[in-house]
């Protein structure tokens, strides 16, 4: 990463990130975050100094593999318990506003 990349962070970019993350930002928040993000990114870019191609990535601090569960049915939640914390439901299903999009 070159030094110039931090300057590249624009309000449009932050707005796009906020959309990806589904967080509405006020114009003030957007402006403040754009500045902060540039600052933080500049600080953390340091990682690229030592992360050369010959170094493997570590995604788990303690290396394990093949951690499996037997295919045996366990206890389920009651519908009541599942819906208890829901903002809105119809007695058996969670209710959401119109989606106006497409199914994935």
């Amino acid at each position: 990463m070159s030094e110039s990349s931090t300057a590249d962070i624009t309000a449009e970019q932050v707005a796009h990130l906020a959309h990806l993350a589904r967080i509405d930002l006020t114009p003030e928040e957007l402006q403040r975050l754009t500045g902060e993000l540039a600052q933080i990114v500049h600080a953390v870019e340091k990682v690229t100094e030592v992360a050369t191609s010959d170094i493997p990535a570590t995604s788990h601090p303690v290396a394990l593999h093949n951690v499996f569960r037997p295919d045996v049915v366990g206890a389920t939640l009651s519908t009541e318990a599942a819906l208890a914390g829901a903002p809105e439901h119809d007695g058996s299903r969670f209710k959401v506003s119109a989606i106006l999009g497409e199914e994935q």
């Binding site: 953390v44 990682v47 690229t48 030592v50 992360a51 050369t52 170094i55 990535a57 570590t58 995604s59």
Partner: peptide, 10 residues
């Protein structure tokens, strides 16, 4: 970013 950070972890 993320990739490099995981290497730093190593």
């Amino acid at each position: 970013y993320y990739g490099s950070a995981q290497k730093v972890r190593t």
